[in-house]
Amino acid sequence: MKKKIRLFSVAAAFMGMVLLAGCNSGQEANGGENTERVAVVLKTLSSPYWKYVEAGAKAAGKELGIDVTVVGPNSESEVMQQVNMIEDQLSQSPGALVVSPTQPDTVVPVLEGANVPVLLIDTDADLKNKTSFIGTENYEAGYEGGKLLASMLQKGDKAAIVSGALGNTATDERVKGAKAALKEAGIEVVAEQPADSDKTKAMSVMENILQKNNDIKGVFAANDDMALGVLRAVEAKGLDVKVIGTDGTLEAVESILAGKLAGTIAQSPYDMGYEGVKNALAAIKGKKVEKRMKSPVEVITKENAQEKLEFLKKIVE
């Protein structure tokens, strides 16, 4: 009997700890009292890219002296959880909402009912009442990537493209841009296959491509994770193939510095988060906010990789 009571109290204490910890982290975020509050709901918080967005949003909050809450599901596949999170944030009546929708259509019904300014970042959605969309021009990013790859190859060389999941509009746009640039430079695209933005999958996709086309000289991947996967497949075969990624993640930049990845087109996730919060505050104060804001892209090669690396490391801290 005594044993059971002890076990019980251990269980109870554990639960209590869990809840206390939960409420602590809540209070941290809810710091000030009469300040404006902006809620940011991202696709997830569990990948480096989204950590930069989070860092940007929080930095903006600090600088502007407002209260910023950043939340997101465990992974980008938790679509309904994101919708629920948006609902739960709205029920706490924030001053404005910044959202990066995982599946653009899914957030439309819940955001249509929002009576505060809604800003979308990174990924756009067909939402009538949105205040603004801040994001990379994906076609442009792809075009820059294609151009960079072409500059490393000779006219008439063969190249391959590894795309994102079917139906992912962002990566599809990048692929379109890259293709256009490669065509202009006279590079022949001999293979194009999806690898669902996944590193491991990209590796096996590339192995298959190399089976058929071992004379490929360059590869454009629609994100950095896939680029790193492609690189692994290429290295395993001991081939000299230029691989270009997109996003500008820390891992990719480190790889460029090490002379492995040829280059990447960096988006500005940090800026997106920062600009999202900054413009949200402007919207709260009734100032005019532009409907579409381009988030700049940056070409990263070995020359400027060190600089980028230091920046990325700084913001993660």
Partner: peptide, 24 residues
């Protein structure tokens, strides 16, 4: 889930809590 969202508890932590509740 809702309560932890309101408290702005991170999603990773929510998983941990729900796991603990199942076991409890």
């Amino acid at each position: 889930r809702n309560g932890l969202n309101l408290l702005n508890v991170s999603a990773d932590f929510q998983m941990t809590v729900i796991g603990a509740v199942i076991i409890a």
